[in-house]
Amino acid sequence: MGSRMIGDGGFIFELQNVSYSYSSNRAALRDVSFNVKAGDSVVILGANGSGKSTLLKILCGLIFPSSGTVKAFGSTLTEAGMELNRSEFARYFRRRVGMIFQDADSQLFSPLVWEEVSFAPLQLGIPERDVQKRVNESLSLLSIQHLRDRSPQSLSEGEKRKVALASVLSSGPDILLLDEPSSDLDPRTKVWLESFLIELHDGGKTIITATHDLELAADTSDRCIILDEEHALASEGPTEEILGNWNLLLNANLVHVHAHRHGRVFHTHPHAHAE
């Protein structure tokens, strides 16, 4: 399995002309192509409804393109190939790739926090004694040991987000896919999240984040991929370069022209909000 860890050219993910439609007249992605290397920290930027979440689900092998191909670790992701009870590759993929969903409630379905965190390693066949160790490690990594015996419905949004992270990290994935991780977070938790993501990246993890939060993109990523409102790839490149291109951001509805008055003169300039 090790030889399949990385595909041709050292890429973990290779997307070739990927399109996806929820129904015949509702395209969510159009002809998207890009690659992700091991150790990258990539942010997928786009306005609401541009297809970011759909793209992450495709990268996670949860849904499959209507046309085009997605390769992960050199193998094409197909519905049949990702059936866990049939495919060795699917189990390998699930061990390596973890996804944190935008709505933490949809990810926290177990009665207690520690059961939630133990879910992934148990499903992946890790022995129960090791699972307990992993649960403890994940909870202490996120400093949430005190939440261990709490039920998810009694947690704050920030705590839920931390538990969701712990529940994915407990299976030890190398690649993390995060969908709008900074939404609904208070400023302190957001700052904590940014430094935690940087720490994970420095520790060797590949991180792919979907967001419209430019501040998060600037602070945590090396590379940005922009989806426009037509659900197509508008541009990709180094974060600094992309975030410096105001016209590009303006066209993708990530910044807006802000008009205000100085005395008698109306003045406009590009303006971005962190959220």
């Binding site: 689900k57 009870n85 949809s106 133990s118 066949g125 994915v168 299976s171």
Partner: peptide, 23 residues
Amino acid sequence: NMSQLVNLSMISRGYDGRVRRAT
């Protein structure tokens, strides 16, 4: 919608239709 997301979240963490729970 929520049940679909829960299902995807379970699959992304290795759920294959057989439930494994800790004692």
